[in-house]
Design a protein around this nucleic acid. Structure first.
Lengths: 169, 169
DNA sequence: TTGCTCCTCACGTCACGTGAGGTGGC
DNA sequence: TTGCTCCTCACGTCACGTGAGGTGGC
């Protein structure tokens, strides 16, 4: 009741029986059975063992069809090419993530340096009239904590707000 | 005279005639002619039109041999797979360059920030005894010029050594 | 002359697609 | 009963590899 003609079935849900799937993919039903025997496609099955092809299965079948008819490849080649296309997609995705990370780093580099400049300027500018008590808080209340990335890539917060420690002096 | 049995021929220089190449690749000479007719391999030719296969050609032939015999692929598939392997290598190389660049940026980030800290510390620490003349050079002779990357990725040197300009004050 | 090269043509084998044939459940 | 499903078996076609056959230059 709740879902009547709502939401199309998910792309990997088996819905087409073999004659429909063959029609959609432009193939002979027997060919689909052969492809399954070869391990090229694995439709789900109904409780009565009837094959049920998903939308994703149909797309894969069409891809196979193009590779065999347009390019003249045999099934061994199709199998290999499909696997390589998958690997290619993964590599591509990983590269896009890296690209984004690199751009982020570029922006961050400029921003962090500016941040350090700003923090020093606050210390230098915060001038107190003679005789007034300069409280440590006046100097330190601005966030003077600079996140630094460690060599292994993890983020770390360096506690820099402990006054002005000159290392080795 | 200068080169006698020195330097092996470069990998892409045609040196083997067809019977030798076929022997090295484990194939029938006629098969090599067929592959050439299909555009799978293009050996160079002597002035007398004799085919000359390079070391790289031999390696390619061996790769083809593995794909056809071990994997059972036909030539259309082999062609496609070889092209994809090439694309894969390019992608892989590009990714390695990006990886190196990202690591370089990580190191640079920490280093630049440290550099800014150092430059401020020099200004603060360089104390002169009362009555002595503090020359501008004492403050500025350390390189206080910080290369910054622009948004478009090109490197730029920001001339920061012009005293202490507070922008907008 | 021998042994290579070049080429074209033809045939055997095998993979692939598909049709036939028989079964069983809505 | 009709039209689907399941399965196996068999055949036609085509790609591929290779052999044969004839030519020509070291």
């Amino acid at each position: 009741m709740a879902q009547r003609r709502a939401d199309p079935p998910p792309a990997d849900h088996g819905v087409f029986m073999i004659s429909v799937a063959a029609e959609l993919a432009g193939m002979h039903p027997q060919t689909l059975r052969m492809y399954e025997a070869r391990g090229l496609i694995t439709p789900s099955r109904s409780p009565k063992r009837t094959r049920l092809y998903s939308q994703r299965d149909i797309e894969r079948l069409r891809r196979i069809h193009r590779l065999t008819t347009e390019m003249g490849m045999n099934l061994a080649g199709v199998e290999r090419v499909l696997a390589m296309e998958q690997a290619m997609r993964s590599l591509q995705e990983r590269m896009e993530r890296m690209q984004a990370e690199t751009e982020r780093l570029h922006r961050e580099l400029a921003e962090r340096i500016e941040q350090v400049h700003r923090s020093y300027r606050r210390e230098l500018v915060r001038w107190q009239p003679p005789g007034a008590v300069a409280r440590r808080e006046d100097v330190r209340r601005d966030a003077f904590t600079i996140p630094i990335r460690r060599k292994d890539g993890s983020a770390a917060r360096e506690p820099r707000a402990q006054g002005h420690e000159e290392p080795g002096t």
